[in-house]
Design a protein around this nucleic acid. Structure first.
Length: 270
DNA sequence: CCAATTTGACCGAG
DNA sequence: CTCGGTCAAATTGG
C-alpha cells in the first residue's frame, strides 16, 4: 500500500486552482454587471446563464476536491471526478410552457398526462460516490435500461408540487467493482430552501462524512440487481453500515471548523 | 400519522 | 411494437 499523495495532492491542487480561477471569472462578471446601468436589461439576462455556469464550475471543483480527499485509489480518481461543468447550461427554461395535457381524459382509468423531458441534460457528473448537492430529492421511480446492467433511479425535487420546482435528476450506476455513478440533472431549482440560498451547498457538505454515508445508503439499499445473483439482496435488507470513514475524526470542531474539510482529517492551514 | 420509497402499470416517442 | 420516463397505490420508516 504505497501512499502516493503527490498525485492526489496535485490533482486536488489543480481542482482548487481551477475553482479559484473560475471564481475570479465569476467575480469579474458580477462586478461588471453591477457596474452596468440597469438599462442593460438584455445584458443582464444573458449574463445569468453564464453566472450559473461559473457557479457550477466552482462547485464542481469543490466537489472534485472532496472526491479526491475521499478516494483511496488516487489513480482512478481522475476518471471519476466530475468532468467540468459543461458550458452548455443551455437554459432550458425556454422549452416552452408545458401545455398541459392535451389528452382527453375520459376514462377514469386515464392518468394525468406524462410530460416528458425533451431537453438535453442540464449537466452531468460521473463519480465514484454519490454527491450531494444540497437539495432535497424525492425518488419517484427506477428502471432497468437496455444496455446498463444496473438500475437507473429517477428523482425529482421534493418541492415539485410545493413550489413547482422543475428540477429532476437521474442516477445510474455504471459499474460495480469500483462503484461508479452517473448523475444527470435536468432543469434548475427554483424552490426556496429553508436554508439561505447562498449557503445552499454548505449544509450538505458540512455534514461531512455523513454526506457520503447518506447517499450511499440511498442507493445501495435497493439498487442491487433484481436479477438474482449471489448478491444477497433480499428485498429487505437492513440499512447496512456503509463506508464508515476510516479515520475517525473526533469532532470537537469549533463552530468555525464546520468546514467539512476537518472531517477529512486534513489540516488546511491558511 | 405523515412523508419517503418501492413497485408495477401507464404513457409518449420513435 | 419497444423503450425509457412518470404516476400513484402499497409499503416502509421515523
Amino acid at each position: 500500500m504505497e501512499n502516493q499523495p503527490s498525485n492526489g495532492k496535485r490533482a486536488m491542487e489543480e481542482e482548487l486552482i481551477k475553482g479559484c480561477e473560475t471564481a475570479n471569472q465569476l467575480l469579474e462578471v458580477l462586478v461588471h454587471k453591477s457596474n452596468t446601468t440597469h438599462e442593460d436589461v438584455e445584458l443582464e439576462g444573458s449574463v445569468q446563464p453564464l453566472v450559473e455556469d461559473l457557479v457550477r464550475k466552482v462547485l464542481c471543483s469543490f466537489t472534485n476536491t472532496l472526491l479526491l480527499l475521499n478516494t483511496n485509489n488516487i489513480n482512478d480518481v481522475s476518471k471519476y471526478t466530475i468532468k467540468d461543468a459543461p458550458s452548455s447550461v443551455k437554459c432550458p427554461e425556454t422549452q416552452g410552457t408545458d401545455e398541459a395535457c392535451k389528452s382527453f381524459f375520459h376514462a377514469e382509468k386515464r392518468r394525468g398526462c406524462y410530460k416528458r423531458k425533451s431537453s438535453a441534460p442540464t449537466w452531468e457528473t460521473n463519480s465514484s460516490i454519490l454527491l450531494e448537492d444540497g437539495y432535497a430529492w424525492r425518488k419517484y421511480g427506477q428502471k432497468i435500461t437496455l444496455n446498463a446492467k444496473y438500475l437507473r433511479s429517477y428523482y425529482r425535487c421534493t418541492h415539485k408540487y410545493d413550489q413547482g420546482c422543475p428540477a429532476t435528476k437521474q442516477v445510474q450506476r455504471t459499474q460495480e467493482d469500483p462503484p461508479l455513478y452517473r448523475t444527470t440533472y435536468y432543469g434548475h431549482h427554483n424552490c426556496k430552501s429553508s436554508l439561505s440560498p447562498e449557503i445552499m451547498m454548505e449544509p450538505a457538505f458540512s455534514s461531512g462524512s455523513s454526506m457520503i454515508l447518506s447517499f450511499t445508503s440511498t442507493l445501495t439499499s435497493k439498487e442491487g440487481y433484481p436479477f438474482s445473483s449471489s448478491l444477497s439482496s433480499s428485498t429487505k435488507l437492513e440499512p447496512m453500515e456503509v463506508i464508515q470513514d476510516d479515520h475517525i475524526v473526533q469532532n470537537q470542531l469549533s463552530s468555525s471548523d464546520y468546514l467539512l474539510l476537518s472531517d477529512y482529517g486534513l489540516d488546511f492551514n491558511y
